[in-house]
Amino acid sequence: MTTLLATERIKLFTTRSPWWSAFLALGLTIGFAALVGLNHNGGPLTVEHSQFGMQFGLMVVSVMAALAITTEYRFATIRATFQAVPKRTSVLVAKTAVVAVLAAVIGEVAAFGSWVTTYAIDGGPEMAITTGADWRMVAGVGLVYAIASVISVAVGTLVRQSAGAISILLIWPLLVENLVQLIPGIGDDIHDWMPFTVAGRFLNGTGPDAPMGPWASLAYFAGVAAVLLVASLVVANKRDA
Protein backbone atom coordinates (compact mmCIF):
# COMPACT_ATOMS: atom_id res chain seq x y z
CA MET A 1 0.00 0.00 0.00
CA THR A 2 2.83 2.44 0.75
CA THR A 3 4.17 1.90 -2.76
CA LEU A 4 0.74 2.50 -4.19
CA LEU A 5 0.32 5.67 -2.17
CA ALA A 6 3.73 6.86 -3.30
CA THR A 7 2.82 6.08 -6.92
CA GLU A 8 -0.43 7.98 -6.74
CA ARG A 9 1.27 10.87 -4.98
CA ILE A 10 3.86 11.09 -7.76
CA LYS A 11 1.15 10.89 -10.41
CA LEU A 12 -0.84 13.68 -8.81
CA PHE A 13 2.01 16.05 -8.15
CA THR A 14 3.81 15.62 -11.45
CA THR A 15 0.93 17.35 -13.23
CA ARG A 16 0.14 20.97 -12.72
CA SER A 17 -3.47 20.43 -11.68
CA PRO A 18 -2.99 20.08 -7.89
CA TRP A 19 -0.83 23.20 -7.77
CA TRP A 20 -3.35 25.20 -9.74
CA SER A 21 -6.18 23.89 -7.60
CA ALA A 22 -4.42 24.71 -4.37
CA PHE A 23 -3.50 28.15 -5.65
CA LEU A 24 -7.04 28.85 -6.86
CA ALA A 25 -8.76 27.45 -3.78
CA LEU A 26 -6.59 29.44 -1.41
CA GLY A 27 -6.71 32.60 -3.53
CA LEU A 28 -10.49 32.54 -3.82
CA THR A 29 -11.30 31.71 -0.19
CA ILE A 30 -8.72 33.95 1.41
CA GLY A 31 -9.32 36.71 -1.13
CA PHE A 32 -13.03 36.58 -0.43
CA ALA A 33 -12.41 36.69 3.33
CA ALA A 34 -10.30 39.80 2.78
CA LEU A 35 -13.07 41.41 0.70
CA VAL A 36 -15.61 40.70 3.42
CA GLY A 37 -13.30 41.96 6.13
CA LEU A 38 -12.36 45.15 4.32
CA ASN A 39 -15.91 46.14 3.50
CA HIS A 40 -17.42 45.23 6.81
CA ASN A 41 -19.15 47.87 8.89
CA GLY A 42 -21.71 47.75 11.63
CA GLY A 43 -21.10 45.19 14.35
CA PRO A 44 -17.84 43.35 14.99
CA LEU A 45 -16.44 40.74 12.62
CA THR A 46 -17.11 37.20 13.77
CA VAL A 47 -15.47 33.89 13.01
CA GLU A 48 -18.32 33.17 10.60
CA HIS A 49 -17.45 36.18 8.45
CA SER A 50 -14.02 34.75 7.78
CA GLN A 51 -15.48 31.54 6.32
CA PHE A 52 -17.96 33.02 3.83
CA GLY A 53 -15.79 31.95 0.89
CA MET A 54 -15.22 28.33 1.92
CA GLN A 55 -17.55 27.10 -0.84
CA PHE A 56 -15.17 28.43 -3.50
CA GLY A 57 -12.44 26.18 -2.22
CA LEU A 58 -14.88 23.31 -1.88
CA MET A 59 -15.85 23.53 -5.56
CA VAL A 60 -12.24 23.85 -6.72
CA VAL A 61 -11.28 20.81 -4.64
CA SER A 62 -14.26 18.86 -6.00
CA VAL A 63 -13.23 19.58 -9.58
CA MET A 64 -9.57 18.77 -8.89
CA ALA A 65 -10.48 15.45 -7.25
CA ALA A 66 -12.80 14.44 -10.09
CA LEU A 67 -10.14 15.32 -12.67
CA ALA A 68 -7.59 13.19 -10.81
CA ILE A 69 -9.48 10.13 -11.99
CA THR A 70 -11.27 11.27 -15.17
CA THR A 71 -8.03 12.47 -16.77
CA GLU A 72 -6.67 8.95 -16.28
CA TYR A 73 -9.53 7.70 -18.41
CA ARG A 74 -9.16 10.61 -20.82
CA PHE A 75 -5.50 9.87 -21.53
CA ALA A 76 -5.96 6.12 -21.11
CA THR A 77 -3.27 6.08 -18.41
CA ILE A 78 -5.78 4.13 -16.34
CA ARG A 79 -4.83 1.10 -18.45
CA ALA A 80 -1.18 1.54 -17.63
CA THR A 81 -2.17 1.97 -13.99
CA PHE A 82 -4.25 -1.22 -13.87
CA GLN A 83 -1.57 -3.03 -15.84
CA ALA A 84 1.02 -2.12 -13.24
CA VAL A 85 -1.30 -2.91 -10.33
CA PRO A 86 -4.11 -5.27 -11.32
CA LYS A 87 -5.83 -4.89 -7.94
CA ARG A 88 -8.10 -2.04 -8.94
CA THR A 89 -9.59 -1.56 -5.49
CA SER A 90 -6.15 -0.89 -4.00
CA VAL A 91 -5.28 1.55 -6.77
CA LEU A 92 -8.46 3.53 -6.40
CA VAL A 93 -8.34 3.54 -2.62
CA ALA A 94 -4.75 4.79 -2.76
CA LYS A 95 -5.72 7.51 -5.23
CA THR A 96 -8.69 8.53 -3.08
CA ALA A 97 -6.48 8.68 0.00
CA VAL A 98 -3.86 10.88 -1.68
CA VAL A 99 -6.49 13.23 -3.09
CA ALA A 100 -8.33 13.40 0.25
CA VAL A 101 -5.14 14.27 2.14
CA LEU A 102 -4.39 17.05 -0.34
CA ALA A 103 -7.98 18.29 -0.03
CA ALA A 104 -7.74 18.29 3.76
CA VAL A 105 -4.51 20.28 3.66
CA ILE A 106 -5.99 22.80 1.21
CA GLY A 107 -9.07 23.06 3.44
CA GLU A 108 -7.13 23.72 6.63
CA VAL A 109 -4.81 26.25 5.01
CA ALA A 110 -7.77 27.98 3.35
CA ALA A 111 -9.81 28.11 6.55
CA PHE A 112 -7.04 29.29 8.88
CA GLY A 113 -5.66 31.56 6.15
CA SER A 114 -9.07 33.19 5.82
CA TRP A 115 -9.39 33.50 9.56
CA VAL A 116 -5.92 35.04 9.96
CA THR A 117 -6.63 37.45 7.10
CA THR A 118 -9.91 38.69 8.56
CA TYR A 119 -8.35 38.83 12.03
CA ALA A 120 -5.49 40.93 10.74
CA ILE A 121 -7.92 43.34 9.06
CA ASP A 122 -10.17 43.95 12.05
CA GLY A 123 -9.84 41.36 14.78
CA GLY A 124 -11.76 41.73 17.99
CA PRO A 125 -12.69 39.34 20.78
CA GLU A 126 -15.56 38.02 18.61
CA MET A 127 -12.97 36.73 16.14
CA ALA A 128 -11.35 34.47 18.73
CA ILE A 129 -11.73 30.74 18.19
CA THR A 130 -12.96 29.65 21.59
CA THR A 131 -16.01 27.42 21.54
CA GLY A 132 -16.38 24.00 19.98
CA ALA A 133 -18.63 25.57 17.35
CA ASP A 134 -15.85 28.05 16.44
CA TRP A 135 -13.33 25.28 16.08
CA ARG A 136 -15.70 23.22 13.93
CA MET A 137 -16.35 26.21 11.71
CA VAL A 138 -12.65 26.74 10.95
CA ALA A 139 -10.82 23.46 11.54
CA GLY A 140 -13.78 21.49 10.20
CA VAL A 141 -13.29 22.86 6.68
CA GLY A 142 -10.44 20.45 6.00
CA LEU A 143 -12.62 17.49 6.98
CA VAL A 144 -15.44 18.62 4.72
CA TYR A 145 -13.07 19.20 1.79
CA ALA A 146 -11.54 15.76 2.28
CA ILE A 147 -14.90 13.98 2.36
CA ALA A 148 -16.14 16.01 -0.62
CA SER A 149 -13.03 14.97 -2.55
CA VAL A 150 -13.86 11.32 -1.83
CA ILE A 151 -17.32 11.89 -3.31
CA SER A 152 -15.68 13.51 -6.33
CA VAL A 153 -13.27 10.64 -6.98
CA ALA A 154 -16.17 8.20 -6.66
CA VAL A 155 -18.38 10.16 -9.07
CA GLY A 156 -15.42 10.58 -11.43
CA THR A 157 -14.81 6.83 -11.37
CA LEU A 158 -18.48 6.13 -12.06
CA VAL A 159 -18.85 8.69 -14.87
CA ARG A 160 -15.27 8.39 -16.27
CA GLN A 161 -15.73 11.60 -18.19
CA SER A 162 -14.57 15.07 -17.12
CA ALA A 163 -17.44 17.17 -18.43
CA GLY A 164 -20.12 14.89 -17.02
CA ALA A 165 -18.47 14.43 -13.65
CA ILE A 166 -17.77 18.13 -13.16
CA SER A 167 -21.29 19.09 -14.21
CA ILE A 168 -22.81 16.68 -11.73
CA LEU A 169 -20.44 17.66 -8.93
CA LEU A 170 -21.12 21.37 -9.36
CA ILE A 171 -24.80 21.38 -10.30
CA TRP A 172 -25.71 19.01 -7.46
CA PRO A 173 -24.51 20.98 -4.42
CA LEU A 174 -24.94 24.45 -5.91
CA LEU A 175 -28.30 24.07 -7.53
CA VAL A 176 -30.15 20.81 -6.96
CA GLU A 177 -29.79 20.81 -3.17
CA ASN A 178 -31.26 24.30 -3.02
CA LEU A 179 -33.99 23.75 -5.58
CA VAL A 180 -35.46 20.75 -3.75
CA GLN A 181 -36.54 23.16 -1.02
CA LEU A 182 -39.00 24.59 -3.51
CA ILE A 183 -41.00 21.37 -3.55
CA PRO A 184 -43.92 22.25 -1.32
CA GLY A 185 -44.55 20.04 1.69
CA ILE A 186 -41.77 17.47 1.39
CA GLY A 187 -39.09 19.82 0.02
CA ASP A 188 -37.70 20.87 3.37
CA ASP A 189 -37.59 17.29 4.64
CA ILE A 190 -35.62 16.19 1.59
CA HIS A 191 -33.37 19.22 1.93
CA ASP A 192 -32.52 18.15 5.50
CA TRP A 193 -30.92 14.97 4.17
CA MET A 194 -29.01 16.43 1.25
CA PRO A 195 -25.31 15.60 1.81
CA PHE A 196 -23.77 19.03 1.19
CA THR A 197 -26.50 20.76 3.18
CA VAL A 198 -25.76 18.41 6.07
CA ALA A 199 -22.03 19.11 5.71
CA GLY A 200 -22.78 22.81 5.90
CA ARG A 201 -24.60 22.21 9.17
CA PHE A 202 -21.56 20.51 10.62
CA LEU A 203 -19.60 23.68 9.92
CA ASN A 204 -22.14 26.37 10.64
CA GLY A 205 -24.24 24.84 13.35
CA THR A 206 -27.36 22.76 13.07
CA GLY A 207 -30.22 24.99 14.13
CA PRO A 208 -33.31 23.80 15.94
CA ASP A 209 -34.97 21.95 13.04
CA ALA A 210 -32.02 19.86 11.89
CA PRO A 211 -32.47 16.11 12.17
CA MET A 212 -28.93 15.54 13.57
CA GLY A 213 -26.27 17.19 15.67
CA PRO A 214 -23.05 18.54 14.11
CA TRP A 215 -20.91 15.43 14.52
CA ALA A 216 -23.69 13.15 13.40
CA SER A 217 -24.02 15.45 10.38
CA LEU A 218 -20.36 14.94 9.56
CA ALA A 219 -20.76 11.19 10.01
CA TYR A 220 -23.74 11.24 7.64
CA PHE A 221 -21.76 13.19 5.03
CA ALA A 222 -18.90 10.70 5.38
CA GLY A 223 -21.40 7.84 5.11
CA VAL A 224 -22.69 9.17 1.78
CA ALA A 225 -19.11 9.45 0.54
CA ALA A 226 -18.35 5.89 1.68
CA VAL A 227 -21.40 4.47 -0.10
CA LEU A 228 -20.46 6.25 -3.33
CA LEU A 229 -16.86 5.11 -3.00
CA VAL A 230 -17.90 1.48 -2.55
CA ALA A 231 -20.28 1.74 -5.51
CA SER A 232 -17.48 3.17 -7.67
CA LEU A 233 -15.08 0.41 -6.60
CA VAL A 234 -17.61 -2.30 -7.47
CA VAL A 235 -18.26 -0.74 -10.86
CA ALA A 236 -14.55 -0.16 -11.62
CA ASN A 237 -13.82 -3.80 -10.86
CA LYS A 238 -16.60 -5.05 -13.12
CA ARG A 239 -16.03 -2.79 -16.08
CA ASP A 240 -13.33 -3.04 -18.73
CA ALA A 241 -10.69 -0.39 -18.12
Partner: peptide, 21 residues
Protein backbone atom coordinates in the same frame (compact mmCIF):
# COMPACT_ATOMS: atom_id res chain seq x y z
CA UNK B 1 -17.37 23.82 -17.61
CA UNK B 2 -15.98 24.42 -14.12
CA UNK B 3 -15.55 28.16 -14.65
CA UNK B 4 -19.03 28.57 -16.12
CA UNK B 5 -20.86 26.55 -13.49
CA UNK B 6 -18.95 27.92 -10.51
CA UNK B 7 -19.47 31.43 -11.80
CA UNK B 8 -23.16 31.09 -12.62
CA UNK B 9 -24.15 29.05 -9.58
CA UNK B 10 -21.79 30.26 -6.88
CA UNK B 11 -19.87 33.46 -7.57
CA UNK B 12 -22.87 35.58 -8.48
CA UNK B 13 -24.63 34.52 -5.29
CA UNK B 14 -21.66 34.84 -2.95
CA UNK B 15 -20.78 38.32 -4.17
CA UNK B 16 -23.99 39.53 -2.54
CA UNK B 17 -22.50 38.47 0.80
CA UNK B 18 -19.73 41.06 0.60
CA UNK B 19 -20.82 43.87 2.90
CA UNK B 20 -21.44 47.38 1.45
CA UNK B 21 -20.20 46.89 -2.14
Amino acid sequence: VAVLLVYALLVEGLIGLIPKI
